[in-house]
Design a protein around this nucleic acid. Structure first.
Length: 292
DNA sequence: CAAGTTACCTGACGGC
DNA sequence: TGCCGTCAGGTAACTT
């Protein structure tokens, strides 16, 4: 299984689904879902972040064929030939994987779709921080104005520029790290990639957002894209595991530079990486490379 | 409007 | 051995 509660073999920490993980899941699911018809749907009865709209999912998905599987922010979007869309968020510990129809459900399985090829798609989520939202075709047409109205630009979109960030940061005294993790500013960046991007850009995570120069924002935009791209590439090598989800475990082979590495030497300058809590979140940085 | 705090949820882990 | 407190963090609701 490739997302959620999995171990990073190099850093020995668990990977949380941020943009790269959701992107990899999307790419991994796509070839196995597009063109398949949903023949039945099951739900554990337990709520996720919100109650699961069981009836609406059945209504909109049964006997429909999947046409596209895409990502928006940290959401997975599964579109049907009717135009209806299922929007899934993995939360902290969500997993999606394929299993044989008769296989035993693993603990914490909450959603299950039977496909017309004899496989089942299952959603597991230990902590139930994830969500599943069903949009009718009409609702799906308006989604950018409704459910995504507060979601900032994608890090890879042309709208995500140094000028944009500097404008949004003008009156913001919060730390640049917390700023980056704000979904209304830019979507998809969670704690791990905020830490990593700031390290590679040489910016201290505590620096107030409004204090960054145009040059620093510009460098940061570039580093965010580099870090996310690298992570997606690393995750991509584990995509084949989707076919055997449940039997094999895949790893994101990412060697983080600072995340989870407090007490260890910085790969760039050999100084000792420090850990501090910023806005309630574990933050890791090199005191030598990230002075301002 | 900005910023800070809390709740949600469960498993892993350290201390005693 | 087992009990208890703490931590992990995406998101939204709430307070200041």
């Amino acid at each position: 299984m490739v997302t959620g509660y999995l171990q990073n073999s190099l850093n020995n920490i668990r990977i949380m689904p941020e943009l790269p993980e959701v992107e990899v899941v999307t790419q991994g699911l796509r070839p196995h879902l597009v063109g398949k018809k949903i023949v039945s749907f099951w739900h554990s009865g337990k709520p996720l972040r919100y109650p699961v709209p069981f009836g609406k999912i059945k209504q909109e998905m049964l006997e429909k064929t999947i046409t596209t599987v895409t990502r928006r922010a940290k959401f997975l979007q599964i579109t049907l030939d009717s135009g209806a869309e299922l929007i899934i968020h993995l939360g902290m510990t969500g997993n999606l994987g394929f299993f044989g129809k008769k296989s035993r459900r693993k603990p914490h399985t909450h959603l299950e779709w039977d496909l017309d090829n004899g496989k089942v798609l299952r959603y597991q989520d230990v902590r139930r921080f994830g969500s599943a939202k069903m949009l009718t075709a009409a609702e799906a047409k308006n989604k950018e104005k409704t459910i995504f109205c507060n979601v900032g630009p994608e890090p890879f979109s042309p709208a995500f520029t140094a000028t944009y960030l500097q404008t949004r940061a003008k009156k913001r005294s919060i730390s640049v790290k917390q700023f980056l993790m704000t979904n209304q500013i830019v979507c998809g960046i969670g704690n791990i990639y905020a830490n990593e991007s700031l390290f590679h850009a040489g910016i201290n995570p505590r620096t107030p957002a409004k204090n960054l120069s145009q040059q620093q924002w510009s460098f940061l935009v570039q580093k965010i894209r580099d870090v996310l791209t690298h992570a997606i590439e690393c995750g991509g090598s584990t995509i084949s595991d989707f076919l055997n989800a449940g039997q094999k475990s895949g790893y994101f082979q990412i060697n983080f530079a600072v995340y989870g590495k407090n007490g260890q030497k910085c790969s760039h300058c050999q100084a000792i990486i420090e850990k501090q809590v910023i806005a309630g979140r574990a933050s890791y940085y090199c005191p030598q490379c990230q002075k301002r």
